[in-house]
Design a protein around this nucleic acid. Structure first.
Lengths: 206, 206
DNA sequence: AGAAAAATAGCACGATCGGTCGTATTTTCA
DNA sequence: TGAAAATACGACCGATCGTGCTATTTTTCT
């Protein structure tokens, strides 16, 4: 690999860390260069514009998400097992990202929902892909005979994402220690209501 | 009322509109002044610092939220009726805010989850209050004999907020027309699983 | 009406922003 | 090894940021 290309990847990785904390707009080229002990212009030379760097950062985040959250889940057997793993990995991703900043996809959702452009388009696409992935996995739980045949996988995806969102808020902003337990309880309830049979012994209590 | 105080309230209201679009940090005093056809220093003279303005903006948002979302719900009879109204008003709030920017509380949650200070403290307090309010109303559904006596109102609040969060994302960022229907379906499912009896005829289908 | 007080505008400050340019250094490869 | 190409640097640009200071206009009160 070129030395330049290596450095470029290095910059993008650092930028992703920084962007998780201050967003993609708040990401400052000067601050990024200083934190890497290189000059601002030396850093800038690797990208034709700030937006190009921002896009590269978002693409890297997508790659990591696919590798850390989606891929391991697809290795699980179809149906509820795979769905559980997908949720576990998602919660784990959000929790881990919270140590340095927050889940970049959730941050950017609010940063760019009013800002048209290539970044927003890319972000929308990645969110749609993610929802589609969840729905597709949920659909395998139907074909495996675990979920009701007439249930809506897209609705399942919608609700699962909601759990992850409120989990991040409770965990990161509010600092609630029970946040993860609450998220898992919510997911358990979600799964149960999509099953073919609902045992009466289980309740929504804590 | 003083003319100065009147102008101050005017500025705060305009700032709230602007902050809903660009966040509280992205709120620029110069841009705000220009949009109100006054000078930047004339505007600034009403506040000892930008942070003071930001805090005033957040407090105004809290007042409006209490008046538009919470108060009308408390006028409803205790129990599920009140809970339904609370949810309806919340979804309505998020939807309406989305026309100009987005729900400021959700935006700020990501903007300030890593930024200590008075604004963050105020934001955390308002989120805790909101969760507490939902839980308190959910608790009335227990005493009214509609919800299971052993269910957890705080868990209910957690999940209801999650639905509102994913609704905003689906509605504003992704532009999904079914977003509101999805949110209502999710809430229906949430309510049902907290009830004393669960009629077998209802399903999670679309 | 006139004086005291409040409100507003004009201006300038240091800092930081994304971005450009000319030049020096390093890497690459024949 | 030597020349071309890639990479990094410091200086600098125009714009914008929050924030003081001062003068002027407008409101308020006796």
């Amino acid at each position: 690999m070129n030395k330049g290309e290596q450095k470029r990847q290095d910059i993008i990785a650092h930028a992703l860390t920084l962007a998780s904390q201050v967003g993609l707009e708040g990401l400052s080229l000067g601050a990024l260069a200083t934190s890497m002990d290189i000059s601002k212009s030396g850093l800038f030379a690797h990208f034709k514009s700030k937006e190009a760097l921002q896009i590269a950062v978002l693409e890297l985040a997508c790659e990591r998400f696919a590798a850390e959250v989606i891929a391991p889940a697809l290795a699980q057997p179809r149906g509820e097992r795979r769905l559980n793993t997908l949720f576990d990995n998602y919660i784990g991703w959000v929790r881990d990202q919270s140590n340095q900043g927050s889940c970049i996809f959730m941050s950017l959702a609010h940063e760019f929902d009013d800002r048209p452009g290539e970044i927003r388009d890319l972000l929308v696409k990645s969110w749609r892909d993610w929802g589609g992935t969840i729905a597709r996995v949920a659909a395998t739980a139907i074909t495996e005979g675990e979920f009701r045949p007439d249930c809506d996988p897209a609705q399942f995806a919608f609700e699962m994402i909601g759990i992850a969102m409120v989990f991040e808020n409770a965990h990161k902003l509010l600092g609630e220690v029970q946040a993860e337990a609450r998220a898992r309880m919510a997911f358990k309830r979600l799964i149960r209501s999509y099953r073919l049979s609902e045992p009466r012994s289980q309740t929504a209590s804590h």
